[in-house]
Amino acid sequence: MSLTKSSPNNHNSSNSSVDKPMKMVDKFVSELQQLDVKLWIEGDRLRYKAPKETLTPDLLAQMKDRKEEILSFLIQSNPNNASSHESLIAQPEYTTVEKVAKLSYKEFVNSYLNPLHPVVITDAIQDWKALSTWTPEFFKKNYGSKEVTVDAQRYQLRNFIDLVLASNEDKPCSYLKDTDIPGLFPELLADIEPMLLYSQYNWLLSPMLYIPAADPVKQRNAFLELLIAGQGTKFPILHFDYWHLHAFIMQVYGEKEFTLFSPVQTEYLYPVDVSSNRSLIPDIHQPDLEQFPLFAKATPIKVIVKPGETIFVPSGWWHTTRMLTPSIAVTMNCLTNSNWDKFSQDLTRDLVNSFTSFKNHQGKLTILESNIYSYLDNLGKLLVSLDPN
């Protein structure tokens, strides 16, 4: 579609047919903006952020039906960015992470999940028994003889808990993570029920998503994991979650500070490589700006998550944490239609890279990549059709 408007002396029927729908979509976008709905583009997806209860079912249906029109309009309205859908259009102003309560699942989907906006939900796990029972002393007393691996070192849990309780800003302990609760502490699953409302339609748990080469990672990320650390401990890496998965972190004991960066900040965060979800910056709290000068342009968003609170970290959002007290949390990853495209791209890349026998046959690799992506595209459509959302 041309970026040049027709003149009065050159107003043929073709140009009229172009201008009319553009004016219609312009009016629709203006109406959305008057409702404080922010629109932007990420990849080839239309993203949005709106105040609660602003987007009625009718408006959502119109946005879905007119997605391609809106995308074209946003690109044409920003000609400097027209060559790339990766460029952000009408960037939403993310300066804080909201804390909300009594959030319905529908409100969560419309205001946070689909627009990829982080949020802290203050009452999502209010009925968990763990809130009144899980403490460092609880794990030391009841599971002290359990062996856990922390930073490639084996500990009896009682000895690691001693390190947690002695940890401080000057001498922080290591971070217990990647610990599968169903595998190591199956009897504790009853303490963390009911299931988190906002993760109820998690495609990672669908038996239809069975890909043998990827299943170990899928299974580890789909289930609940235990996180334990002491005061002053920091998560070791600034990252976003593997395969662009969403993350829910449920804080059970203690307080934890999250530092987040929007995906549009990526150019300032020094990813290991173009497809990496990890930053080269070893400590964002004490960055070496001579080595990483662009980091000075990054805009962090900080929020303290307290016991009983749950933070939703959307796909592609960079984050890391710092313990303000001894801390116990539970985490899980989530896959829905909102992050399926990025997930498919990441998984396709990793699967193609795993076929070392094709490395010297670019043609075979191209066909393989096309077949995998086509399979995932069709699988995504099937999962969408089965999703009640």
Rank of each mutant, 00 (worst) to 15 (best):
C334H: 13
G254W: 02
W340C: 03
A190E: 13
E86K: 05
N80H: 12
E42H: 11
T179Q: 12
D36I: 00
L116V: 10
K67D: 08
S338C: 14
S327R: 02
V164M: 07
T356Q: 03
K306Q: 15
N360Y: 11
L294G: 02
L260D: 11
P79W: 05
P293T: 01
M208D: 12
Q219I: 10
T122Y: 04
L165F: 04
E137N: 10
P21D: 01
S315P: 00
K64N: 08
K218H: 12
D19E: 15
N114D: 12
R47S: 09
F108Y: 14
S72H: 12
A229E: 12
L280W: 05
E309Q: 13
L157Y: 13
S104K: 12
R154F: 07
A166S: 10
L383E: 05
N80V: 14
D26H: 12
Q126T: 13
N378C: 08
E93D: 09
I281H: 12
S7G: 06
H244S: 15
K38D: 01
T4F: 14
S385R: 07
E68T: 11
E169T: 01
V303Q: 12
F235Q: 13
V148S: 00
L269E: 05
P8E: 02
L379V: 10
T356I: 11
L197E: 09
L386A: 06
T266Y: 06
M22Y: 15
P172I: 13
S262T: 12
L71S: 05
T348S: 15
V274K: 14
A298Q: 02
E107P: 15
F312E: 06
F185I: 12
L189N: 11
R158C: 14
Y198R: 05
G144L: 07
N333E: 08
L116Q: 08
F355M: 10
V313S: 03
L74Y: 08
N81E: 11
N81W: 11
V150W: 01
D273Y: 09
M250K: 05
N10F: 14
T348F: 08
I41W: 03
S111Y: 09
Y94V: 08
L184T: 11
Q91K: 14
M208H: 13
A50G: 06
T133H: 07
I70G: 07
A229N: 11
L280F: 03
G316E: 02
W340E: 09
F160L: 13
P388E: 01
S17P: 00
K38G: 00
S13Y: 15
Y210Q: 05
P263Y: 04
P236L: 04
T54E: 10
K297N: 12
S174E: 05
V119A: 02
S357L: 04
G380N: 07
P263G: 06
L35K: 10
E169Y: 00
T95S: 13
F261G: 09
I70D: 04
S262I: 08
Y210R: 06
E147I: 04
P212Y: 02
K99E: 10
L103Q: 11
Q362R: 03
Q362P: 00
D58H: 11
N159S: 14
L55R: 06
Y143F: 12
K302G: 03
P207K: 01
T233W: 05
S357H: 04
D283P: 15
P236T: 08
D162L: 00
P172W: 03
P212Q: 03
K141W: 02
Y253I: 08
E42I: 04
P212M: 01
L32N: 00
F295K: 03
D241V: 15
I304V: 15
T321A: 08
V274F: 14
